[in-house]
Amino acid sequence: MRVKTKGYLALAGGGILLLLIAIVCEGDLSRKVQGILLGLGSMGTAVGFARFFCGRFEERHPEQRRKAEIENRDERNRDIRFRSRAAAGQALQWAVMALAWVNILCDGALWITLSAVGIFCGKVVLEAALTGYYGSRM
């Protein structure tokens, strides 16, 4: 666990380093590179510190950690998570299709409609492939 928290601290340190580079070398970097550095730096800092402090908290409160692990492994909670993800995926799939229809009605760009239909079909194909994969494993 300690190695893990140190890793997260290193991630946060790396993030701060990237932010510093982006700020200090502002004139020498193109806006694109600076944007990427700022984005990666912010993400690394936020994720690193958040995970580090969560890890430290769990180290000091092993009972809380055990509870969190049980909550995470709990079969009903997993079932709920899987169902929610499936329902969200389904809702998103039809929202994308609705976007395609709205785009057609608004006489929007063709690439938007084609992209939306592509995403819809991609999801259907992926779902069929995963159904086959899990079917062969179970």
């Binding site: 709990d74 079969e75 009903r76 909670n77």
Partner: peptide
């Protein structure tokens, strides 16, 4: 009981 079975109380 949840503690013994390592599941959540809600389960």
């Amino acid at each position: 009981l949840a503690d013994v079975l390592e599941v959540s109380r809600q389960t």
